[in-house]
Simulated scan of single mutants.
Amino acid sequence: MPHCILECSPEILKHCDQQVLMQRCFDAAISSELFLPEDIKVRIQRLENQKIGETALTQLHTEVKILDGRTVEQRKHLSKKVLQGLHAYLSETGLTQVSLSVEISEMERASYSKVIF
């Protein structure tokens, strides 16, 4: 845990190195000091269609799924770290007109299942 899911508009993916984008998210999760590196999973989902109000904004929304039990302060800290890490990278690429957001969602520990084989 966590699962970091980056939902990106095509415009963002055109201007970014996807491996670097994922690494920045990974590094931000590590910097939160809430997880071990081997527990962090990051993936990108391309948004084929999107609409943000009546604007020309592109979008990067990151959902970070974590097991329940973290405090509000820990979740807020994680959200800020991921937002800062991704914002820094997107700024380096020269992108503008981006809607960047981070959502922390909790998964119920009692019902989460996983196997590695």
Rank of each mutant, 00 (worst) to 15 (best):
H3M: 10
E7H: 03
E7W: 00
S9V: 08
L13I: 01
L13N: 07
K14A: 09
H15P: 08
C16L: 02
Q18E: 15
L21S: 01
Q23V: 04
F26M: 09
D27S: 08
A28G: 05
A29N: 14
I30R: 08
I30T: 09
S32E: 01
S32Q: 03
E33D: 10
E33S: 13
L34P: 06
L36H: 13
K41Q: 05
V42Q: 04
I44K: 01
Q45K: 15
R46L: 12
E48P: 03
E48H: 11
N49Q: 13
T55Y: 07
A56E: 11
T58D: 14
Q59R: 06
L60W: 03
T62S: 11
K65E: 13
L67S: 01
L67V: 11
D68K: 00
G69Y: 04
R70E: 02
R70H: 10
V82F: 02
L83E: 03
G85P: 11
G85M: 02
L86H: 08
A88D: 15
A88R: 04
Y89R: 00
L90K: 02
E92T: 04
G94N: 07
T96R: 13
Q97C: 00
L100Q: 06
L100C: 06
L100F: 06
S101A: 12
E108G: 00
A110S: 13
S113G: 14
I116R: 00
F117D: 10
